[in-house]
């Protein structure tokens, strides 16, 4: 009985996560975050790096 309950909860969690991730997928959230927030920040880091620029 206990095992069934745990399995049911795990299945519910799995379905919830699957549907939740679908929202991330559908609204293209990961790409929006990366393009508008993460990449500009990374560019600042790259620009501030001291590189040994030479031919």
């Amino acid at each position: 009985m206990k095992a069934t309950k745990i399995l049911a909860k795990a299945a519910l969690l799995g379905v919830g996560a699957y549907l939740g991730m679908f929202l991330v997928y559908w609204f293209n959230i990961e790409n929006k975050v990366i393009f508008y927030a993460v990449r500009p920040l990374l560019n600042k880091i790259y620009d501030s790096k001291d590189r040994d620029v030479k031919i």
Binding site: N31, I34, F35, I45, Y46
Partner: peptide, 19 residues
């Protein structure tokens, strides 16, 4: 590597590129 190399940062666009 992600914080060091500019080209590595471009790989964050992988999902967009796949689309």
């Amino acid at each position: 590597g992600m914080l060091e190399y500019r080209w590595f940062g471009s790989y964050l666009g992988a999902f967009h590129w796949i689309d």
